[in-house]
Each structure stands twice: as C-alpha cells, then as structure tokens.
Design a binder for these strands. Structure first.
Lengths: 145, 145
DNA sequence: TTTTCATGTAACAAACAATAGTACATGAAA
DNA sequence: TTTCATGTACTATTGTTTGTTACATGAAAA
C-alpha cells in the first residue's frame, strides 16, 4: 500500500513557516518538500479553513502561521489534513454475513481500536512548539559540530 | 490507499479449515472469500512453509490445519503472511538531511512505534482457538434465533 | 491602468501496490 | 490414463497517492 505522507509533509512546511519571519510562497515550500507548488496549496487549503495558517495573494504574498504553536498538537494537524486512515490493513468484507468473518473482524477490530487510540493519544501529547524546540536543539548541535 | 487484507483473509479461511473435518480445496476456500483459487494458494503458501497448514495434491486433496489452535496467535499469523506494514501513513523522506524533517520524523516515529507495539501485543493475546470459540458462540446464538 | 506575482482549483497524468485472472506444469488418486 | 488438485510465472485490473498542466482570481507594484 502506498503510504500517505500528508501529515509528515504538512508538519514539515509548518515548521519552516514557523521559523521564517515572513510569508513563504507555495514555490518556496514546495522546494523544501521537493515537490510541486500545487501540491502544497492543496495540502494547506484545509489548514487555512481551520484558521491554522493564512494565505495572501499577489506581491509579497504567501503562507504564514496564524495559530499558537503551544496550543496546537500533532493530533490537531492530523485532523486538519483529513484524519487519513491510520492502518494499512483492513477487512476483506466490511459487514460480512459469514459468522466466521464476523468473528475475525471483531477480534482484529479490538486490536486496531486500541492501537489507534494510543496513537491519537501520543499525537495529542506533542505540540508544534515541542517540534520547533526539537528542531532548535538539532540546529544548535549541528552548528557546534 | 488500498488496504492489505491478507491477514483478515487468511484468518477467515483458517477458521473454515478448522471447522471442517476434511481437507478443503483452494476452490472451496476461494468461494468463502469470493475470490480466485490462485489467490488462496498464494496466501497459504507461506503458512505451509511455516508448518501451520498442509496441502495435498490430487483426488481428495486440499488444505488442512496442522497446528494446535491453542498455541498459535494472531501475531503468529500476522508474521506468517509477511508482517505487512501496519500503518497507512509514512514519512515523505525516510532519511532526510533537513533538520526540520528529522524532527518531524522522530516525533511521528515515537507515536507510531508505541501504537505498533500495542497492536502486536493485542494480536499476541488472541489464539486461533479463541477465534474458533467466538465463532461457535455466534453460531449458537444464531441457531437459537 | 497594466504588468507582475501569487494563490485557487479543476482536470488530467503518472506511479505504485494490492488483488484478480490466465495458462500451463506437476503430482497423486481413481 | 484420466481426473482432480496444487504450484507458479506472467499479465491484467483496480484504486490511491502524488504530480502536472492550464487557466481563473486577486493584490501589489510599475
């Protein structure tokens, strides 16, 4: 299964935006991701609607962060990019008549449900500010080397 | 992303095999899954190599279970089908130079690692015998209705 | 007012992975 | 020797993510 990297990508550009004093254009953000500007606009459209970022057209325009990094968690961003499906495994048939398949589905569902809940909990524990701090730490270490 | 349903499918046919007194052919198993016999042979090939099932050619041949249902867990079967990747989300770049992306990847990795560990733990808690018992319970309930 | 820069978005193309299907070889029992 | 069944290579289909092109919209600068 081809993996969805929207969450990873959005977080990446958000941090670049956070560390830039001025708006960044879709082209600039796309360069960070080695991709196309249209992909960036699509990715960020949802976040703009939710008020996490803003975009400005024309000269000097571009994207900037409009939320408090300390208040927004990775879980919020996960939701903002459309709560992509967590697991790469699924049931063969979603609502089977077969009693055997019902038993299998339920057993798997329980395991997946618990794992997903833990994932969401972990994502809720990390704010964008935490990520930003981690980046700054890495930057200091690399500068010393 | 198209979800991998090998684990679900294999468990489904294993339980049918467990509840059959005699070997079942690939055609019969394929009918349970509404798919092709070749798909079944491919799915079960790995389990045969690991000794969970056996296949016999020719008249009266087919597939049967050769393991102890009480000893084999869903985690064993998960491994037997090739430990398919758990998550439908991934990093944009696996080993990035960009410090921002490194920070993002690490934060996500920690969350995913914990969730995957819990999933495996839950799968290890359930044996094929448990699934079989659950099926029998469902069967009794439906028979009463 | 016109040009330039930038986003907004629809429509289409490419890349990739899971599943399905076909064809033919192998082997065992009737 | 015929029939049944697996083994497997090869190809086709389907669905999803990502990338690309084209053009409309809007704002600032010249």
């Amino acid at each position: 299964m081809k993996k969805d990297s929207k969450l990873s990508s959005v977080l990446h550009v958000l941090l670049h935006m956070a560390h830039s004093g001025q708006p960044l254009t879709s082209e600039q953000l796309a360069a960070f991701l080695h991709t196309n500007a249209v992909v960036v606009r699509r990715m960020l459209a949802g976040l703009r609607e939710l008020g996490y970022v803003d975009s400005v057209k024309g000269h000097g325009g571009g994207w900037s962060i409009t939320c408090d990094l300390k208040q927004v968690t990775l879980r919020d961003i996960y939701d903002a990019v459309g709560t992509p499906s967590v697991f790469a495994m699924g049931h063969r048939v979603e609502d089977p008549q077969c009693l055997v398949e019902q038993a299998v589905n339920q057993a798997l569902d329980e395991a997946f449900r618990d794992a997903e809940a833990l994932l969401i909990e972990r994502l809720s524990d990390v704010t964008l500010a935490d990520l930003s701090d981690d980046f700054n730490r890495r930057f200091r270490i690399q500068s010393q080397a």
